[in-house]
Simulated scan of single mutants.
Amino acid sequence: MAFDKDCFYCVKDNRLTDIMIRICDLEASTLYLFKEQTYRGRCLVAFNGHKSELFHLTDEERNAFMKDVARVAQAMDKAFSPTKINYGAYADKMTHLHYHIVPKYEGGPSFGGTFEMMPEPKVLLSDDEYTELIEKVKRNL
Rank of each mutant, 00 (worst) to 15 (best):
A79P: 11
G108L: 00
C10D: 04
G108T: 02
R62W: 02
Y105S: 00
D92P: 00
G41I: 05
L124K: 10
E60L: 09
Y90D: 10
E61Y: 03
V45H: 04
N14Y: 01
R71I: 04
D59F: 15
K67W: 10
D68H: 01
G88N: 10
Y130T: 00
D68Y: 05
E27Y: 01
R40E: 09
R139T: 00
L133M: 06
D18V: 07
S52W: 03
L33N: 03
T58F: 01
L31K: 03
L33P: 01
T58L: 05
K67R: 15
L133V: 08
A73N: 08
D25N: 12
N14F: 02
G41F: 06
E60G: 11
I134N: 11
K136R: 12
M20S: 03
S52N: 12
L57E: 06
G113C: 05
N86P: 12
Y105D: 05
P82N: 03
F8Y: 07
N140L: 04
R42A: 04
T83S: 10
G113F: 06
T38Q: 00
A46V: 10
M66K: 00
I23W: 03
A89D: 11
Y32Q: 10
F47H: 11
Q74A: 15
S110K: 11
A75Q: 02
I101T: 08
K12Y: 01
L44Y: 06
F3R: 03
G107A: 14
A73K: 00
F3I: 09
E53L: 09
M76N: 11
I19S: 02
G108E: 09
P103D: 01
P121N: 09
I19E: 15
V123K: 12
P121E: 13
F8C: 09
P103F: 04
L124E: 02
F34S: 13
F47M: 12
E120C: 09
K51D: 00
D4G: 13
T17N: 14
L44M: 15
F47E: 12
G113I: 06
C24D: 14
R15P: 13
K136Q: 12
P121L: 05
